[in-house]
Design a binder for these strands. Structure first.
Lengths: 201, 201
DNA sequence: ACAATAATATACCAATCGGTAATTAAATTT
DNA sequence: AAATTTAATTACCGATTGGTATATTATTGT
């Protein structure tokens, strides 16, 4: 489908963009943005530093691409779940589950939440991308809550945008606790208590 | 009281230990443990690096002393407040106030909470000191809650130690949000909602 | 006066950081 | 075959990191 007749001039590219982004994502996820150097990424990805710079321009450019990748691979399923028509309670429980369960073979915690926490230290492109995701996340929570209100599944006297921010706060905190090695059960108990403020009596 | 007759041999010490700890504390507090180098501390404190190493042994040793200082100067008043006989509600409001207000001229957020969040990156002495403070903090919360239970000011069906951990979580989160520049009012609103789970009806 | 002691300051160490200049290799166009 | 274009590699840059070896300075004991 892509055997374009237009042959490109010059030495053909062997740089594996997707693989490099994957390696960088896992490193940032495991060790945090402060704990990873470009040299380490290059070595693990089997890529030279100038190649990486020609592809992404800077560390900032690479981080931005990592964030975009993380969103589509990891966050998007959560977004989809929140847009699905299930009952508020069921989806809330799913949300708690998604934010506390540990995936074997995958890093603990959430790369987006970690980077959001270090936002002030990051550069422009990465920061902008964080803000885009954060905005979309809050909007998704808000819409979810508004639908729940229409169904009488959510207290009408609580402002939707504040509730969205509150949920985002609690989920983010849980993710960070998880990354720090807190126990899953303790983590889940805290979340359930914090979210019980939305219970309808 | 200390004009000991025993005169010390060798060149008299001019190294200002307290001043150096103060400078280091403010730097760590403002910029985070990852964002501060020993060189920076030495330059700002007007101290040579070998002097600092002879006094504290290592970066780890300095951080431990900084934490001890932070506890006695900043955290201890909170501990005292929680041990005071005021009503639970009043002290809870004071606690929210203490964890959200901004002190002009002082760094935002809480150094202890920041370091606790980076615990896995820190070295042994510092980590041990963090754990000591954390244990004392949770114990203080627990005792406070137990006294409130006896006075009928706290729901008896909630485990005290879990509640202590919950409060610690929420306060720590608020401190971090504050350090990241979140608005005080938003921050306070989240805290009040999260702690409303302890309301007696 | 002179040795012993303790604290200071200068200058350095190897390692690492993000980033790049200069060269070489592989393809297409003419 | 030669010129052109694009990518990859090597080797480097200055700055900074935590940490130290060495020399100097200031005091006391003899």
């Amino acid at each position: 489908m892509q055997q374009e007749t237009k042959k490109k001039r010059g030495r053909p590219k062997t740089f594996d963009r997707e693989h490099t982004i994957t390696i960088a994502m896992n490193l940032y996820w495991c060790k945090g943005v402060d704990g990873v150097s470009l040299n380490e990424i290059c070595n693990l990805a089997g890529v030279s530093k100038p190649s990486l710079y020609r592809e992404f321009g800077s560390e900032d450019g690479l981080m931005k691409e990592v964030l975009i990748r993380y969103r589509s691979k990891i966050l998007e399923p959560v977004f989809e779940m929140l847009k699905s028509p299930g009952s508020f309670r069921i989806n809330l429980n799913r949300l708690i589950e998604l934010n506390t369960e540990e995936h074997p073979g995958m890093p603990k915690g959430c790369l987006f939440v970690k980077m959001r926490g270090d936002k002030l230290k990051l550069e422009t492109e990465t920061r902008k991308q964080i803000e885009v995701i954060q905005r979309d996340l809050l909007a998704t929570y808000s819409e979810w809550i508004n639908r729940a209100k229409l169904n009488g599944e959510f207290p009408g006297n609580i402002d939707s945008e504040f509730a969205a921010s509150y949920i985002s706060s609690q989920m983010g905190f849980a993710r960070n606790q998880q990354a720090r090695g807190e126990s899953v059960s303790q983590n889940r108990a805290v979340l359930e208590m914090a979210l019980s403020v939305f219970d309808m009596e």
